[in-house]
Nucleic acid binder design. Structure first.
Lengths: 223, 223
DNA sequence: GGAATAGTGTCTGTCAGACAGTATTGG
DNA sequence: CCAATACTGTCTGACAGACACTATTCC
């Protein structure tokens, strides 16, 4: 009995917020299959250089998006089967990464940002992978600090609330939002730093407390 | 440059509730590495016969546990890397399955049930995989109907509440529990069927409504 | 002073949990 | 009638959201 070789890859759903809309970063494929098509950044697992699949995903982000330290990178799910890739039976470990739009500016040109609510036809099962990522992000945003990773530091609480509202697609109560953020105990005010410039009262600037830099803070009852 | 072959496997964390404790089904390995050791049921992905990794997991359940129709089977996470398997760089797609203890009776002898809170040393990273599965199940039990898959139908509400309490490890309020179960709208009373035998008022028996047979019902605010 | 936005004190409706009562069986 | 458990009606404290007020800036 011959053992068929299985294709092992990683795909990264790199999400950011631009102009109030959640967008996914796509790259133009330079190889077959689907050469020239827009697709998720991904690639083969390199057994020689990657210690695990998460390292493969970080390498993909470095090579294809020029991102050195991924602020937030989480395993999403694994997509597998005989028909998803024309080359044969494949396993794609999908990861979800969140970055502030400012961080992607450096990779302009290599990446194309597409609103997740208006995706073009995509190769493989990339549409399904993106949908799963968006669903996960929206779900986790309801009860965790996940969206802070879409905000460049330092930021104000009204800015952070706008990010939450953009991700969740619904307006939030200001008082409740501030209560919850306070409960999460994940932010600290930057002493003396205020957002000035507007013709109105300046807002306090905040940053993420170091322990929550790469992880999440969870809330018992949502928001 | 030579491409190293990557080992593709699936592992199944088969959980059940026995004597009020959450237990995982382990099998004695019949091959190297770790032959004779207790480990999670698992095996290679068979590209020729499995349409995807979930089918591989279902096949493993069938071959190693004698389970034909897995009542609940969900992808957990993927564990990968160079060091987790002595044979080389490996990818293990882990699945979590829930069954009532009664269903496992038919597979007695092949499976050994071990309480998840008193696990022996296990090969590979199986301890880590089991811990992830238990954490996921406990977490999801807080706001979904997941534990019904640990209950053989038909069951009474007090029985179901006991299952929730065993999984979550804390007592629940009876009134709130019944309100929530009612909100989930996932159960229907079996007409005229009552649990008799005790020297007390008999309890109404319930079954899962067909649409929720293999999926979950989610609650907005937990429990 | 006015416009605009940041931030806060207080009220209220809702809902989860507690309590205690009724219901229904076997002995 | 008593013990035991199933089930239900009602009260109450806590909390999310609404409202309105104060604070601070630029013009």
């Amino acid at each position: 009995m011959t053992e068929t070789r299985i294709i092992c890859t990683v795909d990264v759903v790199l999400l950011t917020l631009e102009q109030g809309a959640l967008k996914v970063a796509l790259v133009r494929r330079d190889r077959e299959p689907f050469a020239q098509a827009l697709a998720l950044p991904g690639g083969y697992v390199h057994a020689q250089e990657d210690v695990d699949a998460q390292a493969s995903a970080a390498r993909v982000l470095r090579e294809k998006a020029g991102l050195e330290g991924p602020p937030y990178l989480e395993q999403l799910a694994t997509f597998s089967g005989a028909v998803r890739d024309p080359r044969g039976w494949s396993v794609a470990v999908a990861y979800c990464a969140l970055v502030p739009a400012e961080v992607l500016a450096q990779a302009a040109g290599r990446l194309q940002l597409v609103p997740v609510d208006g995706l073009p036809p995509l190769p493989f099962d990339h549409r399904q992978i993106i949908d799963a990522a968006v669903q996960r992000v929206r779900s986790k945003s309801q009860y965790s600090s996940l969206p802070v990773h879409l905000c460049a530091e330092p930021f104000t609480l009204p800015q952070l609330q706008a990010v939450y509202e953009a991700v969740l697609g619904e307006p939030l109560n200001k008082v409740s939002f501030r209560r919850k953020v306070d409960e999460l105990a994940m932010l600290e005010p930057v002493p003396g730093a205020l957002q000035t410039g507007g013709a109105h009262r300046p807002a306090q600037l905040y940053r993420v407390r170091p322990p929550y830099r790469r992880s999440l803070s969870l809330s018992a009852r949502g928001l």
